[in-house]
Amino acid sequence: MTEGLAVPRDLDLGDRASALEQLKVPPAAHSQMASMVKDVLPEQKAGLLIGSRQGPLLAARMQKMGESDGAKAVGEHLVRLGTDTSWKENSGSALVGRLVDATLHSLTAPPSAPPAPASRVRVCRRRALLVVVLAGDTARLVQRVRRVGVVTETEATGYDCLSSRLVSESELRAFLLDCFESAECQLFVGHEDRVSEELRDVLQDVVFSVFCTYRETSGHFSMALGVSIEGWLADRVGRREFAERFAAHFDAYVLYGDTEPPGLWTVILADGNRLRGAMDEGDNRYMLYAATAPVPGLPDIRVDEGLWQLR
């Protein structure tokens, strides 16, 4: 969807007017492109496509083509939307997704190419591993990782951790954008209890490079994070580096699991020091009872350097 486009890291597709401005699509040019779409699609379907979340990206692609090949070329590509009737088999959000897919295909393939095949998964050509978000029949969120090509040998993964500080969603979003150098449109952040609700208006086949959920906890930790990322991002920022950055940025201590013996965890302090700790947990309450060095603010924790020797 974004290949070949100059997409700002903070692109906000939730605000269409702002997104068009960020993508440098002038109102007059957007109106002209909307008219061209209405010339080849029924009015209702054209409205769904133009008003879709991906609409500004499609407009940016049409503008780029118009600048290089002329408005006539854009029209010649779009005309296939009138003959590609595959979208008629869908309804609701699936219809919008199919219209977006068909339009993207019409703009990126030669005019003589056949219609795009229907697919539940939109492939981002520059990605090896995609995190696909699907809403189930019971409104439960299901995350799946699908391998679609080899660009990096690193598997998609998840960084799960506990933080001593409760961070606001806006702070968390800003940190993740900076940490992974991701575009706004490639990031999802949501509370565990509200994920399905927040994804209600998002197409089922939308791909997020970074998918983060969080919840409040009690005990020595105030927040639990689950961050699913594509393999190429894991190459960029490893698990330990992620915890170190989070701890330093939010002046917190962070616990996560990696290769420790069963029952033990790694704890990163705000100053970057790394400890090994033992913890009791239950009913969303997490309490450290031993660590290889003192943890600031937790004087009652037993210091046991022998935890490093356990295998």
Score class of each variant (00 low, 15 high):
96 V>S: 10
49 L>K: 13
92 G>F: 10
264 L>E: 08
239 R>G: 02
261 P>Y: 03
251 D>M: 00
97 G>K: 15
276 R>K: 15
43 E>D: 09
97 G>Q: 15
231 G>V: 02
69 D>F: 07
36 M>C: 10
301 I>N: 00
200 R>V: 03
60 A>C: 12
232 W>D: 12
268 I>W: 07
68 S>W: 09
201 D>M: 08
230 E>G: 14
245 R>A: 10
177 L>T: 10
198 E>D: 09
293 A>M: 07
85 T>Y: 08
196 S>R: 04
77 H>A: 09
240 R>F: 00
267 V>K: 00
110 P>S: 13
83 T>H: 12
117 P>C: 00
43 E>G: 06
62 M>Y: 08
213 T>A: 00
289 Y>L: 05
308 W>D: 05
81 L>C: 08
175 F>R: 04
261 P>H: 03
124 C>T: 12
144 R>P: 02
54 Q>V: 03
293 A>W: 00
129 L>W: 14
175 F>E: 03
304 D>T: 01
182 S>K: 01
49 L>N: 11
130 L>R: 05
104 L>V: 04
95 L>R: 15
272 G>P: 09
95 L>V: 13
95 L>S: 02
45 K>V: 07
178 D>T: 05
239 R>M: 00
122 R>S: 06
82 G>I: 11
161 C>G: 08
119 S>N: 01
245 R>S: 12
23 L>Y: 09
13 L>S: 12
37 V>N: 04
171 E>T: 02
185 C>S: 11
186 Q>G: 14
232 W>F: 08
13 L>E: 09
240 R>C: 04
245 R>K: 15
234 A>F: 01
136 G>H: 01
298 L>F: 10
227 V>A: 11
46 A>I: 12
2 T>K: 01
164 S>L: 07
193 D>K: 08
256 Y>I: 01
154 T>H: 11
44 Q>Y: 03
188 F>N: 07
185 C>L: 15
203 L>Y: 01
200 R>F: 04
11 L>T: 13
238 G>I: 04
28 A>R: 15
182 S>A: 09
81 L>H: 09
86 S>A: 15
6 A>Y: 02
138 T>A: 09
289 Y>S: 02
243 A>H: 06
